[in-house]
């Protein structure tokens, strides 16, 4: 597998040299492979947002290096804009970044800055809109006339349209209702599958991460506390809870059963999985048909 992003001893300190000095990220080392879907979790103030903004050069690390495709992104600070096109970043509540007259024009903003034009631009915009499930007829509307969920999609499309190699989404489902969350999440998965791109999904909703991520990165107080396959991370439910995170209810139920001596596996993440595990056991007992 090809490594796309590598972090070497990365650290960040806010307000260095002032009385308000605060170490937000501390000595993080990790590598992310091309085509992976990574879940990023951590309590508020764990440093995960700072870490994410270092990936596309919005924040310059105080220590260490960020390597994109093997090259230090800060080797030539003047070309840092180039990095921002290659690592697309969708902020929390991205709908607040919409500003153009029409949704179409707004989605154009990023790719146009990247230098796309003509047919190429049009194609990028329409594809991005399709990935986020934005209906074509909405493209000619003013972004301010859209519903909350549609605005969110338009904003995400604006980043996807830059055709980034890595897409970072910070809490893309925040504030959406369960249905909106579900639909958006499945669209992200579809995008990931079709483009074979690297996606980093930052989320408080552990259920979402559990469902879609290949590997999960856990931040705790500025440090990388875990970075492992999803199942393995969620089998450490106690540790996650200690670092201020909430584990899916089903994971905890299965863990309790395991503790009480029942033969169920660790790190069960979804209701489907729990059902697959429990049904045969109950069948053997003659409790199910």
């Amino acid at each position: 597998m090809n490594c796309i992003l590598e972090l070497k001893n990365v650290g960040f300190v806010y307000g260095r040299g002032t009385p308000f000095e605060k170490r937000a990220v501390d000595n993080v080392n990790l590598t992310i492979n091309e085509g992976e879907l990574i879940g990023v979790i951590g309590h508020t103030g764990s440093g995960k947002s700072t870490l994410m903004q270092m990936l596309n050069g919005l924040i310059r690390p105080s220590d260490g290096q960020v390597l994109l495709g093997g090259k230090d992104i800060w080797a030539e600070p003047k070309k840092i804009r180039e990095v921002r096109f290659r690592v697309g970043m969708v902020f929390q509540y991205p709908e607040y970044q919409l500003f153009e007259e029409t949704v179409y024009k707004d989605i154009c903003f990023g790719p146009q800055n990247r230098g796309l034009s003509g047919k190429e631009l049009d194609e990028a915009v329409r594809k991005a809109a399709d990935f986020t499930g934005l209906k074509p007829e909405l493209l000619e509307k003013s972004p301010f006339d859209l519903s909350g969920g549609e605005k969110r999609r338009a904003a995400i499309a604006g980043v996807i349209a830059m055709n980034p190699e890595v897409l970072v989404l910070d809490e893309p489902t925040a504030g959406l209702d369960p249905m909106g969350r579900e639909v958006l999440l499945s669209q992200i998965v579809r995008y990931h599958k079709e483009r074979h791109n690297t996606v980093l999904l930052v989320s408080h909703t552990m259920e979402d991460v559990a469902r879609v991520a290949d590997r999960v990165l856990v931040m705790n107080r500025g440090r990388l506390s875990m970075f492992a396959p999803t199942k393995e991370v969620f089998s450490h439910a106690d540790e996650l809870e200690k670092s201020g995170l909430k584990v899916p209810q089903i994971t905890k139920i299965m863990q309790d059963l395991r503790r009480q001596g029942f033969d169920v596996p660790e790190g069960v993440l979804t209701v489907d999985e729990a059902f697959e595990v429990l049904a045969p056991i109950l069948k053997k007992e003659g409790k199910l048909w």
Partner: peptide, 16 residues
């Protein structure tokens, strides 16, 4: 704070 956030978001879209 909001200005700061919006600036970061637009920079991420390549605003110069």
């Amino acid at each position: 704070e909001e200005t700061d956030k919006i600036m970061q978001a637009q920079k991420a879209r390549g605003a110069d």
